[in-house]
Design a protein around this nucleic acid. Structure first.
Lengths: 296, 296
DNA sequence: TGGCTTTACGGTTTTCGTAATCATT
DNA sequence: AATGATTACGAAAACCGTAAAGCCA
């Protein structure tokens, strides 16, 4: 039995596919397949059922999964324990939504650099859904993004709440009373892709209230949305911090809207796979959480 | 990092020497040395201090020792968990004193055969001191022998007590009163080697009381001692069960002795290295203990 | 057919033991 | 001198990737 075999088994079990596991471990399917066969030969029991379209873990495999995971995390701990606390090395991929990146990524990176100078960081800034999918697939160790994952294997711990504001160019609405849904529907909605947290809230709202919005300008940059809104292209639903500056400068105004247009605050969470017990991942996740909770 | 490297590290640390570890792992010093060097290169910290006459573990090495041990025992557990409870395989070396072997070894072997048919047993029957040394050096997983180990890393759990009896041929002593030390010293003492439990008690007695016994017939077979005693060659101090049969047959008589010749009962224990957490070793040790405690 | 897994094969890398060398008592 | 650890080197084994072949939807 070797650590490589156990690692191959572990990721094949977690990702539910040899192909994905091979990709994650930077090797070919062929090599990974053989590793797992050798492990099965070693312990004398099949760990995966190959009869279906993809490899499915067997009962025997389930029985050893948690132990394999413990064993692999002990391997990481050994390195840390030997080198001392600041000797943590390795690479950590994690995801951050654009808003959180804007606010906290510099602090997070600085703190990690200070405590663990040897660690190589691979942060990824993307939209909510992509970040969550990466965590679910084990591509990233954790992600800071709004909402909850539907995958029960993913733990989401709330960090903060961010209000979503309806904003528009100052000239667009003149009445003092709250804007109604009908009035809003006359204008194009400027939003990001359907995988962005704010857009998901928007779609949710339109589904619940039976509204139809005309969305324009496909982009994944909230800044581009803000700029387009300033230009008077339409109205937008954006996270407070993105528009704060423009509101104080008077380039955008916040729209008061009727109750049925109210959107709940975005609950930002830190998400990670429950069974992930890599020391490096846990430490960096905790640092990131603390920084977000402390508000810098 | 590989399991082989960790195993090499573990045994080098436990046995305090590369040479012994290499012997235990059935490989050459050269190969083991290189394995450990590779492990050190991997984690970036020296695990052993080679400046002395033999390799001494460093602080960094101490820090990871327990984790390495946990990791290695997880490896064993994985096999067991995958194969199911009776799928335990592997080889187990253990030591048994001759008396305990006579009484319990058949039952122990039968019970293990029944519960773990795949396990290969390598029992060793020897005298007390050899058995304890084997446990201390990690040569055997556990031993059933009288007395306690002086090594603090060895745990000894008492199983039973066996009386040591002074015996002689019926013709040797005629008086009804207890035999005195002076009378006893006139006869040769038939005993086993100094590494045997009963002989150790004998030597302890002679040291404490300032007696000088004339020991003859060097052997490690209690049966040979009994036979020689029956032949009238001298007196012997033997474990009760060895002489029971001869006493009832009248071939030997138990000598009543004065107080200063009284020898305490031999406390038989099961001994094992505290840090040994091999699943196989633990299970078989527990089976053996239960059989001894139940008296078959 | 197309995604996923296994088999076959070769070339590279790793690993190990022998033998020689170094270091410490 | 003797024990224990390291280095050098050649042989054997393990490992990996490419390419081809099976296998199930």
């Amino acid at each position: 039995m070797t650590l490589k075999q156990l690692e191959a088994f572990y990721w094949s079990a977690i990702l539910g596919s040899f192909a994905l596991a091979a990709e994650r471990l930077f090797m070919t399917q062929s090599a990974l397949s053989k590793r797992i066969q050798e492990l099965e030969l070693e312990i004398g029991v099949p760990l995966f059922d190959r009869s279906g379209p993809r490899a499915r873990i067997t009962d025997a495999g389930e029985n050893i999964l948690s132990r394999a995971e413990q064993l692999l995390s002990l391997r990481d701990e050994i390195v840390v324990a030997a080198r001392g606390p600041s000797g943590l090395r390795g690479t950590c991929r994690f995801g951050v939504s654009e808003l959180m990146a804007m606010r906290y990524l510099p602090s997070i990176v600085a703190a990690i650099r200070r405590d663990y100078p040897e660690v190589i960081l691979e942060p990824r800034v993307a939209v909510t859904k992509e970040l969550l999918e990466d965590v679910e697939k084990g591509e990233t160790e954790f992600a800071i993004a709004p909402g909850r994952s539907l995958d029960p294997a993913v733990i989401s711990e709330q960090i903060c709440e961010v209000p979503l504001l309806w904003v528009a160019s100052p000239g667009l609405f003149h009445e003092d009373r709250p804007v109604t849904a009908e009035e809003l529907q006359h204008h194009p909605i400027i939003s990001m892709s359907e995988k962005a947290g704010s857009t998901m809230q928007l779609l949710d709202l339109s589904a619940r209230r039976g509204l139809r919005f005309r969305r324009v300008l496909t982009t994944n940059s909230p800044e581009a949305v803000a700029v387009a809104t300033i230009a008077g292209l339409g109205v937008a639903l954006l996270g407070g911090p993105f528009v704060e500056r423009y509101l104080t400068e008077g380039k955008l105004v916040r729209l008061a809207v009727e109750d049925r247009l109210q959107v709940p605050d975005l609950a930002y969470c830190i998400h990670w796979r429950a069974e992930n017990s890599r020391v490096l991942a846990r430490k960096l996740r905790e640092i990131s959480r603390d920084i977000c909770l402390a508000g810098r």
